[in-house]
């Protein structure tokens, strides 16, 4: 993870490599411009990658356990789409109504609306999961919900003013590099408690794998447990979508990768290990997205898809561990 951290930190469009970074950290004679680039852009971007990687991968793990479905993840089940739609409503609605939020209100309104969108989307998919037990059917239901959210979003875009579309498009392209120091603080304020809460659900997550009846007979309050997981997942997914835009495959692939490395069903190991693996993978993806050119950055979603999709295909062919009950 440390190497991935340094890789991400030293990658970017400006000429600020590992040597310059060491100089900035240990030598005061570095030009102010480079210092600004480092402290205002590179450092927040790298820490954003860590927090976003942690949040998305842990929420993927929680969803795979909650739905007892290896194909579950915030992106494929339409949770990200729900967040997108809610932010679209906020951005386009406030632009149409000519409401100008202060930056502080905007910093809170966007993640809160994204989390509400994720919560609503999770609620719908949870309702469907009560009736639909097949992994593939649930995945298809998630994709259909995603289409519905996308279509409503398209209608909003169709009706919106050019200024609103511009604001929303900029947001929806997503990037780890658009998060300021203040936003990073807010992001950590949501992600770190969410992660801790997920960790404290470890025992219940283990037991829940055995099925509803066994879980109840082993002392789990199913309603409380389900809603706790839904809330944490919505919070973790929503806040990352709000600040970084949609990022695919981290939530789906990282929990599997972690299980393959640690060979354990215990969530007290899986939750922190998934967080570390997710953070490391997103740091690497960030570094990779920056290393091909000095003139542009490949959007993070493209890099995660290029790495994540082949990995999920590999899991499908491997087949043995890609199955839950």
């Amino acid at each position: 993870m440390l190497l991935a951290f340094l890789f991400s930190l030293s990658s970017g469009v400006s000429d600020l490599g590992a040597t310059e970074i060491i100089r900035i950290l240990f030598n005061n004679s570095t030009p102010e411009l480079l210092k600004d680039i480092f402290f205002q852009f590179r450092l927040p971007k790298t820490f954003t990658a860590i927090l976003a990687g942690m949040a998305l991968s842990v929420s993927g793990l929680l969803m795979q356990t909650l739905f007892r479905n290896p194909l579950a993840g915030p992106y494929v089940l339409g949770i990200t789409g729900g967040s997108n739609l809610m932010v679209a409503l906020l951005v386009m609605g406030t632009t149409a109504a000519e409401i100008q939020f202060t930056s502080v209100v905007n910093n809170i309104a966007v993640p809160v609306s994204a989390a509400i969108g994720a919560l609503i989307a999770l609620f719908f998919i949870l309702l469907i999961s009560i009736k639909v037990h097949s992994s593939v059917s649930l995945l298809l239901a998630g994709l259909m919900l995603g289409f519905i959210y996308g279509s409503i979003q398209n209608i909003l875009e169709f009706l919106a003013s050019p200024e609103a579309i511009k604001r929303f498009t900029l947001w929806s392209m997503g990037s780890l590099g658009n998060v300021s120091i203040h936003q990073l603080f807010l992001l950590s304020l949501f992600v770190l408690p969410g992660f801790l809460f997920a960790f404290f659900l470890s025992k219940q997550l283990d037991v829940f794998m055995l099925g509803d009846d066994y879980s109840t007979s082993l002392g789990i309050n199913l309603n409380f447990f389900r809603w706790s997981v839904v809330l944490v997942t919505a919070l973790l997914t929503g806040v990352v979508v709000a600040y970084c835009g949609p990022i695919a495959f981290i939530g789906l692939a990282v929990p599997h990768l972690t299980r393959m490395i640690w060979l354990t069903p215990h969530h007290r190991i899986l939750v922190p290990a998934t967080a570390i693996t997710g953070a490391t993978l997103l740091l690497l993806c960030d570094g990779l997205g920056n290393m091909f050119s000095n003139h542009f950055v490949i959007p993070i979603n493209i890099v995660t898809s290029l790495i994540g999709a082949p990995f999920v295909l590999y899991l499908l062919f491997r087949n043995t561990t890609f199955q839950f009950g």
Partner: peptide, 20 residues
């Protein structure tokens, strides 16, 4: 729920897949 779990245990015919 926990107090009940210390008094009643159950063995069912369900056999969920439990990887790892």
């Amino acid at each position: 729920a926990v107090e009940k779990a210390r008094k009643f245990s159950i063995l069912l015919t369900q056999r969920p897949k439990l990887p790892y």
